[in-house]
């Protein structure tokens, strides 16, 4: 199939995405890296690159932004917390999403579309509105809060605040990202051939064994795709911690937003954005290497 496409056709086909990526990804990234080395301007933005002082021209490029960012421990605190929340979110989504995707994939064909639709329905309303709904669910006046605090009270603990806590942030992150885990997993699980499972069962494998040795390795591409789709957006999330979190559950996205919208320190914001990009790239690389080394992907791709 690939061989039939001529080189010129390949060029024509790949031009639009290249233009798109250059304008909307490459150039902004270069600007961001450049801004990270500029000095913050007197009234926000960046200071002029070349300043005339008397007869000499001073070039305003500096490493101070990196120094400020790296010498302050809050940045590392934010990075670690963002990582922590994203990993928990990904794991929770996987634990909840896998059985759900399995259920949809194994159900009768005529029900599958409806079940998938049910997964997608939350997207019909703005996710901010859904977060506000969670604020009511987790608020101290709600039934959920009353029940949990009642149970905790019996066990002899102090009542807790569900809203404005790290717990609320993780719940909302899981809630928002769950469909992104379910959809790729479903797409993968649906293609599985039931004969393989049957064969393993004929050969004496238990249900658990055939799941662990066949279904799971085969679904690894789906797990990885789903995890990436959940992990990467949640690490940069700033709306959720701002709405349902407290001062101790802010994430790195909040710092970036603050630097661009409130304190107007673009260079520091850019430094933070670079750190976040590197963080995501680093984690993705580690996962990719681990997946390749385990050989599971090749097995699944066959």
């Amino acid at each position: 199939m690939n061989k039939n496409i001529k080189l010129s056709e390949k060029k024509v086909l790949s031009t639009p995405p290249i233009i798109y990526l250059t304008i909307l990804f490459l150039i902004p990234t270069i600007i961001m890296v450049f801004v990270a080395f500029r000095e913050p301007g007197s009234y926000g933005g960046v200071a002029p690159l070349i300043e005339h002082i008397g007869n000499t021209n001073k070039i305003n490029l500096t490493l101070d932004n990196f120094k400020f960012a790296f010498s302050n421990y809050f940045l590392w605190q934010l990075c670690i917390r963002s990582l922590y929340f994203s990993v928990i979110t990904t794991v929770c989504c996987l634990i909840i999403g896998y059985p759900l995707a399995m259920l949809i994939a194994k159900s009768l064909k005529k029900y599958r579309d409806i079940l998938l639709l049910l997964v997608i329905i939350p997207f019909w309303s703005c996710f901010l509105i859904r977060i506000y709904a969670w604020m009511i669910i987790l608020g101290p006046q709600s039934g959920v809060s009353h029940i949990i605090n009642y149970v905790i009270g019996i066990m002899g603990f102090q009542p807790v605040n569900l809203l404005y806590s790290s717990f609320a942030v993780v719940i909302c992150l899981v809630y928002i990202n769950l469909p992104f885990m379910v959809l790729p997993l479903y797409a993968n699980l649906e293609k599985h051939n039931d004969d393989v499972i049957e064969a393993s069962r004929d050969l004496g494998a238990t249900r658990l064994q055939s799941f662990l040795k066949i279904t799971m390795p085969l679904s690894l591409p789906g797990i990885l795709a789903g995890s990436a789709l959940v992990f990467i957006p949640s690490i940069g999330m700033f709306v959720v911690p701002e709405l349902v979190g407290n001062n101790c559950s802010l994430m790195i996205g909040n710092l970036i937003k603050q630097q661009f919208l409130q304190t107007m320190n673009w260079p520091l914001g850019s430094v933070t954005a670079i750190i976040m990009t590197l963080l995501v790239l680093g984690i993705s690389a580690i996962v990719a290497i681990l997946a390749r080394r385990s050989g599971a992907l090749q097995y699944a791709n066959k």
């Binding site: 007197s42 009234y43 302050n72 809050f74 605190q77 001062n247 802010l250 710092l255 603050q258 320190n265």
Partner: peptide, 16 residues
Amino acid sequence: RILVNEMWTEIQMQCH
């Protein structure tokens, strides 16, 4: 302005 903004970044982002 830059000084207060740096202080503010630390105040808001540091968790006590």
